[in-house]
């Protein structure tokens, strides 16, 4: 096992136990609310499962077709401007909740994905392509275009700030 890796059985054990304890307390005080929360969690789980399956398959596929060196070339230290645009584009087209993408990001980071591109990816995810028509309907076309442009610029700026921190030796 590498130095960075943690035993799978221990990962998040404390957190999961804490959540269970909160449910137990809520169940004691308000049984109906606790059951409703369990139902909502089950709904979320069923919504996330297909996305998670796609992410896991995609991770396996990337691992199969791309060698670590290639990933590092596209998204690593020497990826240059292409890396920024790959991260931005991937963020915009990615679907589902943020936490569904953590396994892929974790895997890519172990292969050399730079932190600045992680930040770009996560901020660019604020643009939800399938929901743009709904946003236009609620807030107008101008608002949607301006917000989307600022999100893209904001993502790049944040990545740039992380890069500056890295250059100054403040490793995130």
């Amino acid at each position: 096992m590498s130095k960075k890796e943690k035993p799978v059985s221990l990962r998040g054990k404390f957190f999961a136990l804490t959540v269970c304890a909160i449910y137990a307390i809520l169940f004691f005080f308000d049984r109906q609310m606790a059951l409703l929360a369990i139902q909502k969690s089950a709904n979320v789980l069923f919504q996330v499962l297909p996305i998670l399956a796609v992410v896991i398959l995609f991770t396996a596929f990337l691992n199969y077709i791309l060698k670590p060196k290639q990933i590092a070339r596209h998204l690593g230290e020497d990826s240059g401007i292409k890396g920024w645009f790959v991260a931005l584009f991937a963020g915009v087209i990615s679907h589902g909740p943020m936490y569904a993408w953590y396994p892929l990001i974790e895997d890519l980071r172990s292969h050399g994905l730079k932190d600045r591109l992680v930040v770009v990816f996560f901020y660019a995810r604020a643009i939800k392509l399938p929901l743009l028509p709904l946003m236009i309907d609620y807030f107008g076309l101008n608002f949607t275009i301006i917000l989307s442009c600022y999100i893209l610029l904001g993502a790049l700026f944040q990545g740039w700030i992380i890069e500056l921190l890295e250059q100054k030796g403040i490793r995130p």
Binding site: A16, Y23, A37, S41, N43, V44
Partner: peptide, 16 residues
Amino acid sequence: MLMGVIGLVGLFQVLV
């Protein structure tokens, strides 16, 4: 860990 987060999301949806 992911299950813990999903459990917390359900709690927040009910409590908030």
